[in-house]
Amino acid sequence: MTTVKELKATSRPRAGKGAARAVRREGRVPGVIYGDNKPPVTISLDSAELRQRIFAGHFLTTIFDVELDGTKHRVIPRDYQLEPLQDRPVHVDFMRLGEGATIRVRVPIRTVNPEGAPGIKRGGTVNIVTHAVELRCPADAIPESIEIDLAGMEINHSRHLSDITLPPNVKTVGKLDPTLVTLVPPSGYAEEQRAAKDAAAAPAAGAAAPAAGAKAPAAGAKAPAGDAKAAAGAKKPDAKK
């Protein structure tokens, strides 16, 4: 079961840029709650509290009960904007969650069990290619992260989304099978592999040389046979005499 956190909000009766600026001058952040076939509600939240929630991590996959005028709205954050220079929140959007709602969320990737990867022991580095994947799941069962087990991974090996066992009732969105992580070789790895292959090939080539040279004495062994014929031929003049 997903942990639900609390947020307090106040009504913001007016919409528009001018009203939003007035809210920010009061140290609050304008926002809106929408969805579930109900009219949108404009709200404001404490800037410091909202900033803390955002930078604590997993903000966009966290379920909140926003208390507004004595009523709690079960919501999930859908978007937020930060002031570019000081990273202060300037706006936030929440989507209402009806009972039994199924939603699409982007869930971050997390690697585990690096000590079980032979490639890491040989100097390889984990490269996270896809930092988050889009999933469809029940609103009350959003995974905090998708774990990728690195056990058994060698250098230049990869893990894809299809290699991961997802939690129950959680499905991928779309038909793509993205690469999630790869194990990158250390610097100079290709040269070391080439040198190892050359070293392994060198004894095999050297072992063939004596075999080829062994044929020389066999060829030279015919020479005495030729000399013997010459000696036999030397007796012919005596036979004529």
Results as ranks from 00 to 15, higher is better:
52 Q>P: 03
154 E>M: 02
225 A>Y: 11
241 K>G: 01
69 D>K: 13
151 A>T: 15
206 G>M: 09
159 R>H: 08
127 N>V: 11
168 P>T: 02
163 D>F: 02
29 V>T: 14
27 G>F: 08
165 T>I: 05
38 K>V: 01
125 T>L: 11
137 C>G: 13
26 E>R: 12
41 V>I: 06
62 T>W: 00
25 R>L: 06
145 S>I: 03
80 Y>P: 08
46 D>V: 11
140 D>Q: 02
199 A>M: 12
212 A>Y: 13
159 R>K: 11
136 R>Q: 07
209 A>R: 10
77 P>D: 13
32 V>R: 01
30 P>M: 12
227 D>M: 13
154 E>W: 01
234 A>H: 02
171 K>N: 07
36 D>Y: 00
70 G>Y: 03
3 T>D: 05
70 G>K: 02
129 V>A: 15
138 P>I: 00
146 I>Q: 08
48 A>F: 12
39 P>Y: 03
213 G>E: 11
139 A>D: 04
149 D>R: 00
80 Y>C: 09
61 T>C: 03
53 R>S: 06
232 A>G: 14
19 A>E: 14
92 V>Q: 01
104 R>A: 00
19 A>G: 10
169 N>W: 00
77 P>A: 15
114 P>Q: 09
7 L>R: 10
57 G>W: 12
62 T>P: 02
118 P>G: 03
6 E>L: 14
47 S>P: 05
2 T>V: 09
46 D>Y: 12
88 R>I: 14
14 R>A: 14
39 P>N: 05
1 M>P: 06
52 Q>S: 11
155 I>K: 02
222 K>I: 07
119 G>D: 05
203 P>I: 02
150 L>I: 06
215 K>R: 15
221 A>P: 12
228 A>T: 09
54 I>N: 09
79 D>Y: 04
46 D>F: 11
151 A>S: 15
2 T>G: 05
17 K>L: 13
215 K>G: 10
202 A>M: 12
